[in-house]
Design a protein around this nucleic acid. Sequence first.
RNA 1: GCCAGUGUGGCGAAAUGGCAGACGCAAGGGACUUAAAAUCCCUUUUCGCGAAAGCGGAGUGCGGGUUCGAGUCCCGCCACUGGUACCA
Length: 834
Amino acid sequence: MSTTQHSYPFPEFEPRWQHHWLSSNAFRAKNPGDSDFDPAQKKQYILDMFPYPSGEGLHVGHLVGYTATDILSRYHRLKGANVLHPMGWDAFGLPAEQYAIKTGQHPRATTQKNVANFRAQLQQLGFSYDWSREVSTTDPEYFKWTQWIFLQLYSAWFNPATQKIESLSTYTGQDPDSVRLAYVADIPVNWCQELGTVLANEEVVDGKSEVGGFPVERRPMRQWMFRITTLADRLIEDLEKVNWPDSIKQLQRNWIGRSEGAEVIFKIKDQSEKTITVFTTRPDTLYGATYVVLAPEHPLLDELGIASEALADYRKSCNAKSDLERTDLAKTKTGIPLGIEAINPINGEALPIWAADYVLMSYGTGAIMAVPSHDERDKEFAEQFDLPIRTVIENDVAINSPLINGATAAEGKNKIINWLEEHSCGRRKIQYKLRDWLFSRQRYWGEPFPIVWENGKHRGLSEHELPVEPPEMEDFRPTGTAEPPLAKAKEWVRYSENAVRELNTMPQWAGSCWYYLRFCDPHNKKSFIGKDAETYWKNVDLYVGGTEHAVLHLLYARFWHKALFDLGHLTTCEPFQRLVNQGMIAGSDGQKMSKSRGNVVSPGEVIAQYGADALRLYEMFMGPLEHGKPWSTTGVEGIYRFLARVWRLGMQQDATTHHWSVSSNIADIPLTPAQQKVVHATIKKVTHDIEALSFNTAIAQMMVFVNEFTAAKPCPLEALHIVLRLLSPFAPHLAEELWMQLSNHFPSLQKIGISASQATWPKWNEEYLLLEETTYVLQVNGKVRGRLTLSTTATKETVEQEALNDPSLQPHLEGKKIQKIIVVPKKLVNIVAN
RNA sequence: GCCAGUGUGGCGAAAUGGCAGACGCAAGGGACUUAAAAUCCCUUUUCGCGAAAGCGGAGUGCGGGUUCGAGUCCCGCCACUGGUACCA
């Protein structure tokens, strides 16, 4: 397609403006201390979730959120705010490492290439990022501070007395390692042989690795952990303080999974020195317990010395089952009786003890008291193995429970827990689903830990030794053993005569946990964020990204933020004030966009044909930001036609030379009252809709506006400079170009703004929206039967009278008695008659 | 199973409890043109009556309810999408 066939010359001016914005640093955010910084200016921090720069590049689905935040950013600048709108790269991670292994290139090289590609793609859309603040998690100047933050958390603990994270210097106990926020533990982890690494629970899907789909097995290994569970309650409570979608808050609450209940201690019959501790949320059903179950992995099974072959076989078969199989077999429960009994502390009853894999070792104490009468799973198990079932609740009150008969659940729980505590056989307990955060990975392409090992003990490096850079290595493939690839860099590993470096690296979450803080002060050499910058920018006002990060990224970032807040480095306790999730864009076939389906639309093709403005506008016009929706090529064409109409509102083309010049139809004349109404209604609606992130309806209103003025002969200049300002956050190139063309022709425009992106946002005047007359809808019994135009100042009585006299209503009122007349001022009259 | 979300024309979608379908796509018709593209104008939820202007009925997943009035609020279902899965 040749340039002359385009409906407006975007291929010429879009790159020109992009270059202009970049070279003039047009969207630089001002920091305290900058010469042009104005403390009175309102700040706005508008952030996209920064991308992982994959080799695939961006597709149009990635741009929904970026376009939305760009519109907001440009809007707030026009409203006079100091806007921080940065972009960076979450560039550590497994795919780069695997690609590197496959192709023999260093991940740093492929990462750099991918970043360059991503940056170019984003710049082609004219996004108004402050590129002087660009950061990459793989930059030593960046991960130096990731490591520094790790060290702060490493030398901190959660003080239960103050309910805060404090420096370890306030800890007075014997063993700081038992309370450290970052600690080492030997725990069964998800080991993936193929990837040569441990995976977090959430990176394992159906017993296979989320990346690559390789088998995963459980294996005990020494790992770095974070005591995120210490902040579980605050992570729940502080959700009240942020403006996030309820669904995301709910996901976080469910993930943390707080449940209140009790631990109950069961003595083992004839071995009273041994006990089983169970967790229950329903201590009030204690009298209904008819057996006790241990998880097959429960350590007590070894201690009890039950040498049955059947038990050994059962435990073996459970161990061999993948998570997937356990789920598949969920319908039929399996288990094995141990032949010993536990004593119910409340009534001294002896209950059989079973081992069964429907009880998980990883939750609670790995043991339960089974109350088949009031728990679905226990009931299923009891029915299968013919175990007794005893009802202890009827009509919401306790029965067959001597201590609490007649009590409600809440009363019963309290009484039982008190009794247990008095008799030292149990206690009140709050249990969380959330586990401590497994923070180490056996990879090359990640941040090394700033930790060395000496005489079997770990020690943090000091600040001046940071950053700890990964060693240059030819071969960073997995070792095939539990040893991480860094083990191969013998010289690097050796820290001193008697100290070696930690060989694990941090997970990808590390860099993304705090990047929003670095953007506030990206070049600070002395601190991860300067005090002035921190107190000025505080936290993110609007954070836009996909739901896939609803739980983990947001939870981990909140955890670090709170820790840094408690330690006095930050002045806010939540990182992201407002959160919005953009919807997914599907292919035109309604399927998820993917290479294998062949339905991927790349921004490049769309821009070549319709331009960046059309792509931006279409992304927003498709529907509500949060909704998923399918891509439509003809939809882009419609938007493109709209932009061409805007262009022709200002410009006309010479029939023979095809040269565009300012339209002779434009005149610096006042708006007619009718035009004034459209103009001011549009300013009002576009302003409200942008603030509500309802971009599709804002665009629709601008279409109404343009349709109105396309017919205007001549077209008043005022209409143009207003619509260009309203449009400029959405279609900045076109607005900028037209503004320039028009102000060359009408110098008065320069008083309003030297460019569309450096003008002020127009204000509407409510007066122009008031009308002298309005059309009432006339209803009889709720059905529209006529219309009536009346003065807006007409009294209720007048409106009623006029409506009753209206000829179009007479056939519907005939022979009926009027019961009631409802008048909605300036809108509607409903006559109720029968 | 549980949690969350969504159901409105041929399609994407609009509608502070007050004219359902704004705006756009697609489709059909017309103007301009030697022709096409581009552009501009008109029609387009559906059924019935009418040559037409028009008139009348139905209609927002299904069934109830509140209300003068419900796409919107309440109760009970159904379907789809996403998340989660024996969490005691």
